[in-house]
Design a protein around this nucleic acid. Structure first.
Lengths: 340, 340
DNA sequence: CTGAAAGCGCTTACAG
DNA sequence: CTGAAAGCGCTTACAG
């Protein structure tokens, strides 16, 4: 902070009013007469006055900032194009509502809770956005126990009635994806996901199971694969699946990065996509379009997810809204990876 | 902020010391005796005390946070994989040095200066990171005039002796890229960049010119192309170049997203890469590897750029360092797009 | 090694 | 509509 910067007192003196009055014109208190307000405003301008946000925060007990909890940045998931888009949406929401954004700096794994606690306990933020949702998330637990305003991108598996969250209908998206595969005559469909402990994985898994069930297809534990959101996972399971005695004829993959690598890997083993194995993926990143064949992929609108997450914290902070769920429509982008 | 949270006074009372003393143990002042320190620490733990960051900031005139100015988020450049990597590096640096990160929320264009002014004038940050550097940047101008601690990713074209910055040797990288093209017998080499007003563009352009000059190749204004960091730009100039009477036989492109689209576009016009036109690109994103043919691309190490940018602001804030330049090595990743 | 006191720059009942 | 006063929760010379 710059020394000797002009304060509310300087403005008050110059305008011939009390500091209280200056404070009131800053906060646009309607009970100030137009005359004094104009005079004060004029003086503020002449002195180059700028309210000190820190002092304001201390006195008002409001920071005007929202903490954004991103995935641990040492992990691959941070690089998935999904998150920059989410962040863009959050930024848009923030710029509209006038909030600042404090970014989580958890570089190491499993530090999210520490970051959340720190943000709250040391009074750095008025609200929090959790940009992804894990199964049995300690952050959710903590935030709910404090009744601290926050929103979640994804669907919580606990305290659902208390947490504002925005998500796609991932059950339905997976269900529909599987139905498409089945419509093409696929009967033995595998499920490949990035992280078993994300609730999104669980929802999609549920949709997958339901579609199988409705079509009288048996559910096989052995066709469930989990890993990370990276190419390595795709490569790994390409080999695993290629070496299977009884291969699946369809796969649903929860992320394009994985799907892209998977397809390449399968092809190296001489497996043809979509002839031998049909495939649906998620996130509709550029990789889905670039794959050969181009992949059917579910557009989840991460930008809107982020924007809405911001709206939801704001509602939590300003109106005490809790437990509100917003659903962002998904769309399956059809290309050539399912069949026909 | 939670009402009735425990303050330094509560701790002081319980420990039977003065608030000053408690404050000193928080800041680990060495002049406090081990005995009292332990006693106070114990009381803090028992009461669940957590220092209020806002009050600390106000009293100490330090916020412990750094403002990060990202590209306007409504623009494509925000989505370029370069920036998430930069951000990851910044987060790593921040988590090591203990600073918080306040993110710019400039969604609309040309608002960076407003954001910077706001961060500084309202005392929200102790330092600033500019994640990209424009020609004649008003933010740099402002920050220098205030002598406010900041660092820049890229090379400033003004006040170079005052600004801490980290960059690759982009002159050399471009120079070397062109030399490679020339070594393959290319004689008419075009230059395609994303934004003319970034200093990185200017540096690379200079390297390009120098390489031409040294090899006695004439410089042709008409072979300079500028646009945005998006596919549209690549597509556009693919058509433009295809329709040229006298086509280039080599191109240097400052970003893989553009290069990727350009290659596809040129190929649609029956132009063969690298046979007809050799190509070098920058940023070594996944697209460079996926292109057909895979593209030679310059790895610029965005993660390290971000990490070092954080180090540089810290040095600016804590030690008053100014005008320090750090160079991050680049590496040309050779694939099949240049020739042979 | 420790304490009393002033102060950081605001906001906000309270009173008029 | 406006002011005086207390207070937000810390830090930091100053003094001992």
């Amino acid at each position: 902070m710059k020394k000797g910067s002009v304060t509310i007192k300087d403005v008050a003196k110059k305008a011939g009013v009390s500091p209280s009055t200056v404070s009131r014109v800053i906060s646009q208190n309607p009970r100030i007469s137009k005359g004094t307000a104009d005079k004060v405003l004029q003086c503020m301008k002449e002195l180059g006055y700028y309210p000190n946000a820190v002092a304001r925060s201390l006195a008002s007990k409001k920071t005007g900032t929202v903490g954004v909890i991103m995935p641990t940045s040492s992990e691959d998931i941070f690089l998935n194009p999904f998150f920059p888009e989410v962040l863009r949406g959050i930024v848009k929401g923030a710029s509209q509502s006038g909030y600042d954004l404090l970014l989580s700096t958890n570089f190491e794994k499993d530090e999210e809770l520490k970051v959340v606690e720190n943000f709250i306990r040391s009074s750095k933020v008025d609200g929090i956005i959790l940009t992804y949702s894990k199964v049995n998330d300690q952050c959710i637990e903590f935030l709910c126990s404090e009744d601290f305003p926050f929103s979640l991108i994804g669907t919580p598996d606990i305290h659902k009635e208390k947490v504002n969250h925005v998500d796609n209908d991932n059950f339905q998206a997976a269900y529909q994806g599987i139905m498409d595969l089945i419509a093409e005559g696929r009967k033995r469909i595998a499920f490949l996901a990035g992280d078993k402990n994300l609730t999104v994985t669980q929802m999609r898994l549920a949709g997958y199971k339901e579609a199988l069930r409705e079509n009288g297809l048996s559910f096989d534990e052995n066709l469930l694969y989990f890993g990370n959101f990276d190419e390595a996972t795709g490569n790994l399971y390409g080999k695993v699946i290629a070496e299977l005695e009884e291969r699946p004829d369809g796969i649903i993959v929860t992320d394009d990065v994985i799907a892209f690598a998977l397809v390449k890997s399968l092809q190296e083993f001489g497996i043809k996509i979509p002839e031998d194995i049909g495939l649906v993926s998620f996130n509709n990143s550029i990789l889905a379009a670039l794959a050969n064949p181009p992949l059917n992929s579910v557009e989840v609108n991460p930008f809107k997810l982020g924007e809405e997450a911001m709206n939801l914290v704001v509602q939590a902070m300003t109106k005490g809204v809790r437990g509100k769920r917003t659903v962002i429509p998904y769309e399956i982008i059809y290309r050539n990876s399912t069949g026909t």
